[in-house]
Design a protein around this nucleic acid. Structure first.
Lengths: 356, 356
DNA sequence: CTGAAAGCGCTTACAG
DNA sequence: CTGAAAGCGCTTACAG
């Protein structure tokens, strides 16, 4: 079990016949090195395959320059909020990297107010930060943010992207179209060709969100691609959070048949739909929704919801910090973009441990 | 954004009025410190909440004492083998921790020969190693290994446990019973109450493996727990790899009805079952199996297999190294035991990128 | 039983 | 443009 000692900056210095300070300057592309010296050092580095020891580097730097990551998320009122989980993942990663010199600073914006979002990130830019993790909630303001970050040369990572990436930015999020396709197959397996299908979009004051639209598109695409004769209708129901009575009447008419029914809820509130259908005495209904919030998990446990799709917000936050750290310390951007797997959760592989 | 400098060994030394060498001795519980000094230092450490900086510690130690992890897996003939993925995960983690001073040494045993397994680990014990990662293939030899490792005070981690854990050891593996329950619900969703159900156990020279048995038990348990009137039979078919002709006759008789059929293959060879049923012209069949090997993925893509359950062998290997590193450097054993999630894979969330 | 000093591999003022 | 020296926080002989 042989131990081959890694070559270090000292060896490079000897081989290139310069001081270690000069090697360091070349390594970091700093100014103040003659062209010939630089070439000589680079050649030796190339030949020896030298990589600088990041642990030693961080040991020196952690005490002087802690990396400051700003995190701007929607307001979190309690631990059941989706964004709480993103935050938890961020905290976990920061904890792990703590002694290597990284800190997170948390900011929040009002999820219904684009102006507040803009105000928040402008405020953040007044501090000295090394990167920003946030969420592309509002199209126009997000575009402005992207431009501004580019200008400031500030690395930017979006969690849970809901916007089309016209701009080249870093995204750690699930492909919503693909998630819709997954939902299509799962529901089709339960309901079959002879059932009725419904897509429930739950609207808040901002209207329907882009990723919900993409989920619906994916869902419909599954049926178009996989059924030879695609001759049945998939009903879309846009359900505002207020004014439920009228909606319930419509639903009773639409869903009141003996047929097996499949319901795809495109956001995190499938528990609302489940409860409403129960109230309306709709039977033979199979529901699939998103996100492992407590009310959803309860309905999964009681068999009222059949499938949940997990976007793994904790893992998203965790990965964002780890990816940024790698980028900021190694100039390696490869982990700043991540396609979060479409994780399928049923009663038997769910983790109910937080339900106490 | 305030930076609170972490307290270090130097501050502790000053506060306790001793040298840093003495603080270090106390931190590591080494001999040669008077009781009173030790108590004084421990009190200060307690009061300040000091934690030693692991990065600095590893910087010093990596060059002198590289941690040697032995890995003993079944022979891997090519990249399609299941164990290749465990190895890949191990390699990835070792790569990440390379400069922190960890190395893996790979050994292989004949998967059909318990004596060879025993011989292999005895040979490994002649080297100086800090931990062993292996697989509990053979009951008797594994028990002996556990005892021997205990005697040598050598940390031991099992991947893919197939044995009941009578002994307290470290296991990174999926709960096979739970995986069987998951398979039960998924298949039941497709096939319904009026179909026929079959469990295929594929036997090699070692007979049926314990985790396959546990999967079957979980599968049956799902139906017993979830169907009010559990009045249909689940047929078990033990399928040896040789002597297929006779088997095909039996199968043709058993499965040749118009009913929808659900087939649960308890190991990684669901592709074999899929192909055989196709040859026998069995229709209306829904297959669920384990592991994302290439032939299984091909059948998933062509809709011949409906679900695959992933044990994530790469993640298992990766976690074993990370967990051992944490244990060996921080005496923190919390990551040496891991319940791998039962990951559900369908055509739409599968990664076919390795299929070229 | 305890301390002073050297060193892990890199980074950073400072001096020239 | 370049080098020598101090230092990051811990560990390890060595000396007493």
């Amino acid at each position: 079990m042989n131990v081959s000692k890694n070559i270090g900056i000292k060896e490079i210095a000897v081989l290139a016949n310069v001081s270690i300070g000069t090697v360091d300057r070349v390594l970091h592309g700093r100014t103040g090195v003659s062209k010939s010296t630089k070439a000589k050092v680079l050649k030796i580095i190339e030949e020896t395959g030298f990589k600088r020891n990041l642990m030693a580097s961080r040991l020196k730097l952690a005490s002087s320059k802690t990396l400051q990551i700003a995190v701007l998320l929607p307001e979190i009122k309690n631990e059941m909020y989706y964004w709480h989980h993103s935050n938890a993942g961020i905290k976990k990663a920061v904890q792990e990297l703590n002694e290597q010199g990284i800190m997170a600073n948390y900011f929040y914006f009002n999820r219904l107010d684009p102006k507040n979002f803009k105000k928040s990130y402008n405020m953040i830019f007044e501090h000295e930060i090394d990167a920003l993790i946030t969420v592309p909630f509002f199209e126009k303001e997000t575009d402005e943010l992207i431009l501004k970050a580019e200008e400031l040369k500030l690395p930017l990572v979006f969690l849970d992207s809901m916007l089309n990436n016209k701009n080249k930015t870093n995204n750690i999020s699930q492909n919503s179209f693909k998630a819709g396709m997954v939902a299509g197959r799962l529901l089709h397996g339960l309901v079959g060709d002879c059932g009725q299908y419904f897509v429930f979009n739950i609207l808040n004051k901002r209207g329907i969100q882009i990723n919900n639209q993409q989920r619906e598109m994916g869902f419909r695409a599954y049926f178009e691609q996989n059924l030879k004769e695609f001759d049945f209708e998939i009903h879309s129901i846009n359900m505002p959070l207020e004014n439920k009575e009228e909606l319930e009447k419509d639903i009773q008419e639409l869903l009141n048949s003996d047929k097996t029914k499949g319901v795809f809820v495109t956001n995190a509130r499938s528990f609302l739909v489940s409860d409403m259908l129960k109230e309306c005495c709709i039977s033979n209904v199979n529901i699939i929704g998103f996100d492992l919030n407590l009310p959803n998990l309860e309905r999964l446990k009681s068999n009222d919801i059949k499938f949940l799709i997990n976007q793994n917000p904790e893992f998203q936050g965790y990965s964002a910090i780890k990816g940024l750290f790698k980028y900021l310390t190694e100039q390696d951007a490869s982990e700043l973009n991540l396609d979060i797997p479409v994780e399928i959760i049923i009663k038997e592989n769910a983790d109910f441990s937080e339900m106490n």
